[in-house]
Amino acid sequence: MQITLGPLLFFWPKQEVTAFYEKVAESGFDRIYLGEVVCSKRRELKLDDWLAIAKLLQAKGKEVVLSTLTLIEAESELAQVSKICENGTFVVEANDMAAVHYLAKAGVPFSTGPSVNLYSAEALQVLHRTGLKRWVLPVELSFEHLKLIMARLQELGITDLETEVFSYGYLPLAYSARCFTARTHELNKDSCEFSCIKSSAGIPLATQEGDALFTINGIQTLSGSCHNILDQWQAMESAGVKAMRLSGHSQDILKVADELVRAMGHGITAITSENQQCNGYWSGRPGISH
């Protein structure tokens, strides 16, 4: 079982990003997804900066994947996605069909992230024909659904497709034209002052009764609770899952990965789960449930 680090969903200053990935280079992660996937206005790091981090990680023996923007609206954003797809060195994770279009045309193998809507083996089969090598299960699907999809893939004779499951972190739930961080700060999106940088783990949104509901992260809405199904690693392994994705909202993600590596090494199930975490989707319940 591989342990992967999903793309950083939050807007951190360049120095912090660089320092973070220097630690990631020494961590137990096997495969690292890099790049800005939420908002094209976040430009602390340019593509060359990401490529420099990619090379550093690769030199330390990590698999590196470049992950692309999810909601593409402007032509400049599309041009950037195209450029990443044509990088020629690193595998690319498509988060929109635009990237799938470029990668399929180029004839290079690619991955898809959780926002590409693949809900059945039949849908996977279509992209498999165009070069899909790995996919991330949509976060709202349960283990039962996953098993059905895996069984059907076998029937369809697709045996080389790698499955990755979003296993830890705030769940990406929605994308919008509107920037909710700017709205919170009473700013327009066009003059947002890059205010996402002020909240390194997003802004909590709660009901009027104080129940944690969502996390605001620019144009993205995440779950209010941290999703944690790390204790399912053995079930995933026996179902043929290739990798577990962890998504970080602080440097603590490195400790989480270490703990998972240790648990796997010793063959133990128990993984720390804190209060306020959720895991409902995995068992077919509302995602917020625990």
């Binding site: 999810t70 909601l71 926002s115 809507n117 809900y119 949509p138 976060v139 709202e140 699907l141 769940l171 739930l173 929605a174 994308y175 919008s176 034209a177 509107r178 509901l213 969502f214 809405t221 779950s223 409902g280 989707y281 077919g284 319940r285 509302p286 995602g287 917020i288």
Partner: peptide, 21 residues
């Protein structure tokens, strides 16, 4: 719809049912 259609699962997060599923 405030969110990009097909890319919003706020509903299933709270109720278990979404437009996609």
């Amino acid at each position: 719809c405030i969110m990009a259609e097909g890319r919003c699962i706020l509903s299933s997060y709270v109720t278990g049912e979404s437009p996609n599923t």
